[in-house]
Simulated assay, not measured.
Amino acid sequence: MAISMMDAYTIELLKTHPYTFEQIKHLIENDELHRLTDKYDIDTDRFKTLFDDNALEMEQAFAGNYKVKFVTINGLKNLLRMRFQISDDQYELLPEGNGLQSLQIDPITEQQIRGMLSSNWKVERNKELLTLYV
């Protein structure tokens, strides 16, 4: 499922507070999404539309199987922090400012990152270190 950066942020925010897909589904089906906006600044209308369009894909996205349509460098940094608990001190910015380097992660996380990034991003591995750039 291809989603916006904001949709990815919303999914990752809800997963860490911790909401399961079933709980979100229940809130949507019972028209109780207002319970989320009482706690978080999220667009519940957009979230409901995604669910209504394809609940199965939304469930897959909640499980981490999504691709972000357009990823910015700051968006990437935020998603790495939110989804993989990768902090700023675990990589270096490329001198050109168009990516990250010296990221040391396991192969499973690498595959998840590769699957999440939009097609304009390149991922290169040099031994133990990963570089992500546009």
Rank of each mutant, 00 (worst) to 15 (best):
T72M: 05
F47I: 01
A55M: 03
T44V: 13
L80M: 01
E59F: 05
D89A: 11
Q60S: 12
R81P: 08
F84V: 04
F47V: 00
Y66R: 05
D52S: 04
M58I: 03
D52T: 07
D43F: 02
N65M: 15
K69Y: 14
Y66T: 05
R81M: 12
I86E: 04
V68G: 02
E59D: 08
T72I: 09
K48W: 08
L80W: 03
E57Q: 12
D52M: 09
T44Q: 06
E57C: 10
G64Q: 01
D89C: 10
T44R: 07
L80P: 02
V71I: 14
V68P: 01
Q60N: 12
K69L: 15
T72P: 01
L50Q: 02
S87E: 15
Q60T: 09
A61K: 00
V71T: 13
Q60M: 13
A61L: 02
L56N: 11
N74C: 05
L80Q: 03
I73T: 09
D43H: 00
N65Q: 15
E57P: 04
D45A: 15
R83L: 08
N65D: 15
F62S: 06
S87C: 13
V71R: 04
F51A: 00
T49N: 10
F84S: 04
I73S: 09
D88V: 12
E59R: 06
K69P: 10
R46N: 12
T72D: 06
K48E: 06
Y66A: 00
A63E: 12
R46M: 12
K77R: 06
L80G: 03
R46Y: 10
D88Y: 13
M58R: 06
K67N: 14
F84G: 07
L56C: 11
K48C: 06
L76W: 02
K77T: 02
R81A: 10
A61P: 03
M82F: 13
T44E: 05
D89P: 03
N54T: 04
Y66D: 07
A63R: 14
I73N: 05
A61V: 01
F84Q: 00
G64Y: 06
F47P: 00
A61F: 06
R46G: 09
E59C: 03
F84C: 07
A61Q: 01
F62Q: 01
K69I: 15
Q85M: 15
A63M: 13
S87R: 13
A63L: 13
L80I: 04
D43W: 06
D53R: 11
I86R: 03
D43R: 09
G75C: 08
N78L: 11
E57K: 09
Y66E: 08
